[in-house]
Design a protein around this nucleic acid. Structure first.
Lengths: 153, 153
DNA sequence: GGTGTATTATTGAGTGCACAAGCTATGGTA
DNA sequence: TACCATAGCTTGTGCACTCAATAATACACC
């Protein structure tokens, strides 16, 4: 009955959702990042960038658009792509009609790398999430996360 | 009907949940962190640390335990507490029965700061989440996030 | 055509975190 | 008592990201 016994029932659902989102994110990213890094030398954002590019038309995207999709700042994208370009997975392409834009273009090596990595990585993601959530719960999670700011596509 | 037209229906729910978790976290964190920083000079983890300590018995916790709750490494906690100690919000306390442990002890100033900040911050969290999610959806979110690794209490 | 504003991208500086290595203290075992 | 494995914590190093400032191009407007 001390000071810390207050609350649990009073904490707004939004706040509980927020802290759980924080903790769940921290835990899952730590696990998946470590694995991705150890097995393939990629960070989560490296992987996500390759993935997003592979879904884009002609496997390329304006850097600003990539930033928007990955929820990074433009400067974050510049640094991210530095690494991927050094590894030969992505290359810069210029836009003929607008000299400001530099496309991030997935290379063949990048696509190959993605195919090599994605199966195992998706397996890890599924193992992590499907271990404790039923298919119905996963669908719910997808659904409600889609309504959280930034969670939609 | 191009290469990128594959998939949407085929992507496993676990993977869609994972990417939405990533994006939602990045977006909400960015917003809330910027606000907390601008208005009170705290990071999200600063706030969370104060919050967790305030709920602990005698307002103090072993650093290792704090690390576990915040999903940080011990070294991360050391650096986090450096800042909070410098600001006078937390102080080190030693354990009489085990000289290895150094408690993180919330100071009066820390408690005051937390009370000063929490109302506004909770308001921001609620505004952000309640804007697009109904009470029922929020409860669902709490429920299913609780089953994601790290999301439980 | 020239000017002003918006857009795209990069760079420099600073921050927050992880990993690995190292220290001290504890507790079991012989 | 001596020893050794383990626990708690800190430090050195490195990485990923942000913010603020900067440069170059595009485009609307007069």
């Amino acid at each position: 009955m001390s000071a810390q016994a207050t609350a649990d029932a009073e904490i707004p659902a939004a706040v509980r959702a927020w802290t759980r989102l924080l903790r769940a994110h921290a835990t899952t990213t730590r696990l998946l990042n470590a694995e991705l890094q150890a097995q393939h030398g990629l960070t989560i954002n490296d992987y996500e960038a390759l993935q997003v590019l592979s879904c884009a038309e002609d496997h390329r995207l304006k850097r600003v658009e990539l930033a928007r999709r990955l929820v990074l700042t433009p400067s974050g994208v510049t640094r991210l792509l530095e690494g991927l370009e050094r590894a030969g997975l992505v290359e810069r392409t210029s836009c003929p009609t607008d000299l400001r834009v530099a496309y991030a273009q997935l290379t063949d090596a990048g696509l190959a790398k993605l195919r090599e990595v994605s199966c195992g990585h998706e397996g890890s993601v599924r193992a992590l999430f499907e271990e404790h959530l039923s298919p119905a719960e996963l669908e719910q999670l997808v659904e409600v996360l889609g309504k959280v700011p930034g969670g939609g596509d």
